[in-house]
Simulated assay, not measured.
Amino acid sequence: MWFGRLFRGLGAGLLALAATPAAAWTPASLIAPCEGDCAVSIYGGTYVENAMAKVLVTRPEFPASWDYTTDDHLIATAISREAGWLWDRHVSLEPEVGIGQRFGRQKATEVWGALFVRYHGFPWDGVVRTTVAVSTGLNWASDKTAVERDRNQNDEEGSHVLHFLAPEVTFSLPSHPGAELLFRMHHRSGIFGLINGASGGAQYATVGLRLHF
């Protein structure tokens, strides 16, 4: 399966990167002029009640089967950049910073910084270019909402700062690879109590557009 190849290739690529000083990049690379390796994204979506571990891992379901809350929404924008490549350019490393606004049942502003690991190279890319990615990072919310406090099994007070895990998939036409349709599960949680004793957090199924420049 592609995800097995992804993890095996990522491990091999990290070892190769560590063993090759010339392949290392410096923080200055992130502020160099963009040459098609920068991107801006805008997306929005609706709150999902289902636990992400169940709908994506233990009991996978199609998004049409998820339980949505119709009065709880998010709109967000983010800037990212390809900072390095591994495994013969099949895996890219992409730092991202973003800001989002919840409205409806929850009213809070989110700010995050994360590193995305993205897989490229599906066999059907000649028809529809496809990538999948997952992130790790930190997300700060301006309010400890009642929804997040209810989801926190370990800490009823909740936490402003939680882990940012946002699995996503993108699609683009081979003739226009710089414009991608984006589907992201925008998710923050305490990693089973690891961060500030919090277990749950807010999550949204979102769709948007990413433009590379």
Rank of each mutant, 00 (worst) to 15 (best):
V132R: 08
H212V: 02
G104R: 09
S92W: 01
A179K: 08
T77A: 15
V128M: 14
W112K: 03
P21T: 04
N152R: 06
K54N: 13
H186L: 02
G45C: 06
F213Q: 11
G137Q: 12
A64S: 14
Q153Y: 07
L93D: 06
D155H: 14
M52F: 14
S29M: 07
A23M: 06
L14E: 02
N196C: 02
G126Y: 01
C38W: 01
M52A: 15
V134G: 13
T20V: 04
A146S: 12
W87P: 00
A114Q: 13
E35T: 09
S92H: 02
L181V: 14
S80M: 12
G126C: 03
V127R: 14
A51K: 11
E94I: 13
A133P: 01
G9H: 08
G44Y: 04
N154T: 08
D37A: 05
L209P: 00
T109M: 12
I75L: 13
P95C: 05
F164P: 00
A12G: 14
Y119N: 05
L211E: 06
R102L: 06
I195W: 00
R188V: 04
H176Q: 10
I75A: 11
R105C: 00
F3W: 11
E156G: 09
A39F: 07
G11M: 08
D37E: 10
H187V: 01
W140K: 05
L173K: 12
G126W: 02
L10A: 15
V97R: 09
R8V: 08
S175L: 11
Q101M: 10
V132N: 04
C34H: 06
F116R: 12
Y43G: 06
A146H: 07
G190T: 04
R188P: 00
E94T: 14
L93N: 09
T145L: 05
A64H: 11
T20R: 09
W87T: 07
G126N: 08
A32F: 03
L162N: 11
V40K: 08
H176Y: 09
T69H: 10
A53F: 08
E157M: 03
